[in-house]
Simulated assay, not measured.
Amino acid sequence: MRNEALYRQWQILHLIYQNGSRGISLQNLADEFGVSKRTIRRDITNLSAVGFPIYDEVDNSRGRQLFYYIISNYRIPEIQFSLPEITELYLAYLTFESYYKNDSNPLAAALKKINSTIPEEMRNFLKRMNKDIIPDDSLTLKSSENLIEKVRLIQQAINGGKRINFQYFNPFKKEYSQREVSPYGFKSYQKNFYMAGFCHSRNKIRTFAVNRISELKIISKKILKQELDLKSFFDDGFGIFSGNLRWVELHCSAEIAYFIKERNWHPQTKFQDLPDGSVIMKLPVNGFLEIKRFILSYGSNIRVLKPVALKKIIAEEIAEMKKLY
């Protein structure tokens, strides 16, 4: 796995923090990660060098072993915010408050601290002003609060180098399946989170919509290490889900050409302007499901030029739609 030392150091930091006043021994850390004590010492040195408040102590009551601890009362030095900065932070808090209702979430706790610094009269004024800012919740999931909790638990598994078990819902088959996954990371897309991980139940790297995960648990098995560039994995094609990479060529009418060209698509997307104001768009896609939805959303303003297989899929969908009207 790329940056293996970095991931290990991040996991070490969380293990020390989770063990609190008990601490965790040098030997236990070496055993946990299957490396030498010398490697762990070097990791601790690196973490301390960048400012994490770790200290070590020999515990005579536990076999004179070396234990590591986090300074319990450590706080980041006080930050001074200007009035415009603190009011902007509070407006951001009001906008995203519904996503972080659980006080155990670290970000929710931080937002509440910001809230507490604002005088009540000013808070009321800003709340009234915020009513004029309507957030786009058209694609917001109904279970956004649970979504954040799932993301936090999966992130905890990633930090600890552990696998997860869960039930995964397939909306097409209308059924759940049991999965065991080594999680690697996330991408936020259309107000949902998508997790990339090695699915031990399917023996391949898959993408999972976090909102479709239930009965999520961290298990004791260590993650399967893989060489995975998350950005490349998620950005290889159109949309979020992975699949066989194929090139698509679309003719976009002059009516929508400006709107198509003003958006960021795949980095390899190419446009060819035509004399009548229309444009030909060429881009790679992973499978046809998401690009099909995109094409149909623009109706007669987009025509598939290539490949033939996609043209057939769109034609069949239109034929089925005709039966409804």
Score class of each variant (00 low, 15 high):
residue 4 E to S: 13
residue 6 L to C: 09
residue 6 L to M: 14
residue 8 R to D: 01
residue 10 W to I: 06
residue 10 W to S: 12
residue 10 W to R: 06
residue 12 I to N: 05
residue 15 L to T: 04
residue 15 L to Q: 07
residue 15 L to V: 02
residue 23 G to N: 07
residue 25 S to A: 15
residue 29 L to A: 09
residue 30 A to F: 00
residue 33 F to S: 00
residue 38 R to P: 01
residue 41 R to M: 06
residue 41 R to F: 11
residue 45 T to K: 07
residue 51 G to V: 08
residue 52 F to K: 01
residue 55 Y to T: 03
residue 55 Y to P: 00
residue 58 V to Y: 08
residue 59 D to T: 05
residue 60 N to V: 02
residue 61 S to Y: 07
residue 64 R to A: 08
residue 67 F to K: 02
residue 67 F to W: 00
residue 71 I to C: 10
residue 76 I to N: 09
residue 77 P to K: 11
residue 78 E to I: 06
residue 80 Q to H: 11
residue 80 Q to W: 06
residue 83 L to K: 05
residue 84 P to S: 11
residue 85 E to Y: 02
residue 87 T to Q: 11
residue 92 A to H: 00
residue 93 Y to E: 01
residue 93 Y to N: 03
residue 94 L to P: 07
residue 98 S to T: 03
residue 102 N to Q: 12
residue 102 N to H: 11
residue 107 L to T: 06
residue 109 A to W: 02
residue 109 A to K: 09
residue 120 E to P: 02
residue 123 R to Q: 15
residue 132 D to P: 00
residue 133 I to N: 10
residue 134 I to E: 10
residue 136 D to F: 13
residue 137 D to T: 11
residue 137 D to P: 01
residue 137 D to N: 07
residue 138 S to Q: 09
residue 138 S to D: 10
residue 139 L to Q: 12
residue 142 K to Y: 02
residue 146 N to F: 12
residue 147 L to E: 06
residue 149 E to C: 05
residue 151 V to S: 04
residue 151 V to E: 13
residue 153 L to W: 01
residue 154 I to G: 01
residue 155 Q to V: 02
residue 159 N to R: 09
residue 162 K to N: 15
residue 166 F to G: 01
residue 167 Q to A: 08
residue 168 Y to G: 05
residue 177 S to G: 04
residue 179 R to V: 05
residue 180 E to A: 09
residue 180 E to C: 09
residue 184 Y to N: 07
residue 186 F to S: 12
residue 189 Y to P: 06
residue 193 F to Y: 13
residue 196 A to W: 05
residue 196 A to G: 13
residue 197 G to H: 07
residue 202 R to D: 05
residue 202 R to G: 00
residue 203 N to Q: 12
residue 204 K to A: 14
residue 205 I to R: 02
residue 205 I to E: 02
residue 205 I to C: 04
residue 206 R to I: 03
residue 213 I to D: 00
residue 213 I to Y: 00
residue 214 S to H: 01
residue 217 K to R: 12
residue 219 I to N: 13
residue 224 L to T: 13
residue 225 K to Y: 09
residue 225 K to W: 06
residue 226 Q to K: 11
residue 227 E to S: 08
residue 228 L to N: 05
residue 230 L to D: 13
residue 230 L to Q: 13
residue 235 D to G: 01
residue 236 D to E: 14
residue 237 G to H: 06
residue 241 F to M: 12
residue 242 S to A: 09
residue 242 S to E: 03
residue 243 G to T: 04
residue 244 N to Y: 02
residue 244 N to D: 10
residue 245 L to P: 03
residue 246 R to L: 07
residue 247 W to A: 07
residue 251 H to V: 06
residue 251 H to K: 15
residue 253 S to G: 03
residue 259 F to I: 10
residue 260 I to C: 01
residue 261 K to F: 01
residue 263 R to M: 08
residue 264 N to L: 10
residue 267 P to I: 10
residue 267 P to S: 15
residue 268 Q to E: 15
residue 270 K to E: 14
residue 270 K to F: 14
residue 273 D to L: 08
residue 273 D to K: 06
residue 275 P to D: 13
residue 275 P to R: 07
residue 277 G to F: 10
residue 277 G to C: 08
residue 282 K to P: 08
residue 283 L to K: 05
residue 293 R to K: 03
residue 294 F to S: 12
residue 300 S to E: 08
residue 304 V to D: 08
residue 305 L to I: 11
residue 307 P to T: 04
residue 308 V to S: 06
residue 315 A to K: 12
residue 318 I to W: 03
residue 321 M to V: 04
residue 322 K to M: 04
residue 322 K to Q: 10
residue 323 K to D: 04
residue 323 K to F: 02
residue 324 L to H: 06
